[in-house]
Design a binder for these strands. Structure first.
Lengths: 152, 152
DNA sequence: CCAAAATATGTGCATATGCATCTATTGTCA
DNA sequence: TGACAATAGATGCATATGCACATATTTTGG
């Protein structure tokens, strides 16, 4: 009994791996002035154009209030704007600013370096497979399956 | 081009999956008064007996200061104690209290329910494989491999 | 033995995350 | 149309996470 047996908790395993990988990515990204989560937000906004907050939150599997909080520093730093949707004044449209686009461009090299380090250690093929698995878990269909037949 | 292509970012994929699974576990665990991370801490302390903070942090892949913060609510609620190590007064020994042991016991059923829901949706075999993969990523060896040949 | 390096932790600040609750708009239907 | 349900966010609070920096002990070299 030399080493401690690993935890059987799926959440604990996910958290531990996420912390380790966060440390790698955030360390490399630090020079660009963006955190991993912040970059993920900007990337989705750029891809989508002008998503609503709800749309953004769903895409990132983030609680709407968590997204709201996460957007604050980005808006404060002028990387994106949040404006009322004229067609539905309950909604807010999120858009990148020039500054936001520029920051995203600047972070690209660092992100690539982090990707390379991870995939050099873990394998590019394995990484692609893992991402697919994780996307499945993150998907709404999975959520419904996990909550669909509550054993309570 | 009906649906958005998935992100190629390994960190983003991990975070999204972790958020989804956190929501599942924390929702089920809510009745027990413990969060997923808190339970992971208590479980490790119970298994180890009286780990130092550094040992605990390393085991959970947590920054030492993050662990310090995380322990505060648990100590405040009387679930564990933090005492100075008489053999090395720089160190602190973390121990479960009776109350902490009891709380852990009480949370067991809820945790099992969360595990069941996850593995019913994802597959028990797949879950075991995924945990093994994630433990590898979380391991120190992996960290060293990813940082061993810095391209900087 | 003592000063400097090394080790283990504590604090303050900023972001990350989600719950409960509140406000603002829009949609519904008697 | 007017009350009420539904939708979209916004806020305050608590925990989660890590960095920079400060403090306390121990170890080490001369």
């Amino acid at each position: 009994m030399a080493k401690t047996e690993p935890s059987r908790c799926n959440l604990t395993a996910l958290r531990k791996a996420t912390r380790r990988v966060s440390q790698l990515y955030d360390q490399v990204l630090a020079t660009s002035g963006l955190r991993g989560t912040q970059r993920a937000i900007l990337v989705y906004v750029r891809r989508s154009g002008a998503p609503t907050m709800g749309e953004l939150a769903a895409a990132l599997v983030l609680d709407r209030t968590a997204l709201n909080h996460n957007l604050k520093p980005l808006e404060r730093d002028g990387l994106l704007t949040i404006i009322v949707d004229k067609n539905d004044r309950r909604s807010r449209l999120v858009r990148l600013t020039k500054r936001g686009e520029a920051r995203l461009e600047e972070s690209q090299a660092a992100w690539l370096k982090a990707q390379e380090r991870f995939e050099t250690a873990f394998g590019a093929r394995q990484a692609a497979d893992l991402r697919q698995t994780l996307e499945l878990i993150a998907s709404l269909e999975f959520d419904e399956r996990a909550l669909g037949s509550p054993a309570s």
